[in-house]
Amino acid sequence: MKDDPTRKPETTSGVSRRDFMKISGVGVALPLVLGPKMVEAAGEEVAVHGPGKVPVALTVNGKKLSAQLEPRVTLLDALRDNFDLTGAKRVCDRGVCGACTVLMDGKTVYACAVLAIDAQGKNITTIEGLAKGDALTPVMQAFVAHDAQQCGFCTPGFIVATTHFLEQHPNPNAEDIRRGLSGNYCRCGTYNGIRAVALAKPEGRAS
């Protein structure tokens, strides 16, 4: 596909959307050397960030990542648009569907419901951080074995949620599973397969 001469480039300039966002991020970095605006509140100086881009440093899958982001950028959009971590999916973007589920300090959260600037200082783990290289984790293998996906769009969120759920509930019953995985939707309706994954109790996060 790469050499197909009829294939349209992503943009006429040959710069992809993601590259463009990175370049534009660097472009506004210079004025920020001045540091944030300070306001006085109750006798103390408090830094005011934004509304323009500000430096945001995140710890994702054990790596320190940083970018220039507006305070309104969610953790989900930062992961996908700035750090090329596209495993967490943007579906409802309203904290309902679970497709963007990541771990924040070891707990499942919707990455769309957290501001990136607010996730600083937290340990973020995405689906990319669960596996080592290309090897599947036991939970991922169980998703394959139990046919627990169809279109696959909800799968990364479900795998993060299931991995965490099984760590918290090593011997779940059907009711535990129904409640524990209630924060993720599958519109293909693969719930029976996912339930079978949880009942099979695949062990261990590492591949």
Binding site: A41, A47, G50, R72, L115
Partner: peptide, 19 residues
């Protein structure tokens, strides 16, 4: 989402002024 300023005070006495 519209742009906004973001502040993180460390004591509750600061909140009303910042709001």
């Amino acid at each position: 989402m519209r742009p906004f300023e973001y502040v993180s005070p460390t004591n509750k006495e600061q909140v009303a002024t910042l709001l």
